[in-house]
Each structure stands twice: as structure tokens, then as C-alpha cells.
Simulated assay, not measured.
Amino acid sequence: MTQPLAELDDVRARLDADLDEVTEPLAASALAEASDLAREYGRDWVDADRCPRLVRGLVARATARFVRNPDGYARSRSGDESVEWAEGAAGDGGVFYTEPEIRLIRSLAGRSDIHSVEVIAWGTRQTDRTGYIPVEDGKPFPYFADESEPW
């Protein structure tokens, strides 16, 4: 089992009330889930010591948010027993991160939506025919009409 990225004391500091014998196992389970989600969005931080402090804070925040509202209620009325669940991730009844939190975790992990791709000018590198995509007529792609052309 992997180590959680935050401590239960960090979660306790974000809650209005203390954890009791019912909510402490719930918080520990939610802490493990929030840590796994942070690793999924960011990178595989094996231990909390190598994880950015901001990510540890986000893990504790998501855990505390779940402990406060484990069912994902958006509205509850006591007078006539009316309950309403939120749309989206908050209403799933599980640990979740908001979109800004996900973007922050990804940026702290060095992930972005911009990637670099190696580009090579045609004819500047000697290649052989291995690794080319086969086509119906059996010639590798790209191919020349004249087989005498060098690769």
C-alpha cells in the first residue's frame, strides 16, 4: 500500500470538529483515495517528503471536504426533510478535486497540454526500411515509384 500524501493531522486542522471513532476511519480512507487521485492527476509521488507542499495541502483539503459532506449534498432542509445532491463530481459521494485544483496538481507535476515532437527534414537522416507502415501493394510507406532511389 502506498503512503498517503498528507497526514490525518493536516485533515484535522481543516475541519471544524474533531474526528471521532466513526469519522476517523472515513477520513483515513478518503485520505488514501485523495492521494491516489493526486498521483493520477500529477505524477507517482511515492512518499510525501518528495511531494510538493501545495499538493499535500490539496490532498488534505479534498479529504476534509469529503469528511464534511460524504454524501455530496448540495442542499438540505430540516423542516420537511428535503435533500438535494450536487451535479457532477461533488454529487458522486466520493473524494474529488475541483478543476482549478486539478490544473494546479498537473502544473506542479510538470504536466501540460503542450508537447514537443522531434521533426526531421526529409533526406537528412539515413534510414532503412524497418519501422515503416506496410501498405496494400507491399511497398513500405513512404515509397518511391523507382526502387533505385536511396532512403
Rank of each mutant, 00 (worst) to 15 (best):
A13E: 10
R14Q: 10
R14P: 07
L15F: 11
D20L: 14
D20N: 15
D20R: 12
V22D: 12
T23L: 04
A28P: 06
S29M: 09
S29R: 01
S35F: 08
S35L: 02
D36E: 13
L37F: 01
R39T: 00
R43I: 07
R43E: 15
W45G: 12
R50F: 14
C51W: 06
P52G: 06
A60M: 06
T63F: 01
A64T: 01
F66C: 13
V67T: 02
N69I: 03
D71P: 11
G72P: 04
A74I: 03
G79F: 12
D80W: 10
E81S: 09
W85P: 06
A86I: 04
G88A: 01
G93T: 13
V95W: 07
T98E: 06
P100Y: 08
L104V: 15
S107V: 14
A109M: 11
R111W: 11
D113N: 05
H115F: 01
E118H: 05
E118T: 14
T124I: 05
Q126C: 07
T130L: 04
Y132V: 05
Y132P: 11
I133F: 13
I133V: 14
V135K: 05
P142L: 09
P142Y: 04
F144H: 12
P150A: 00
P150H: 01
W151V: 09
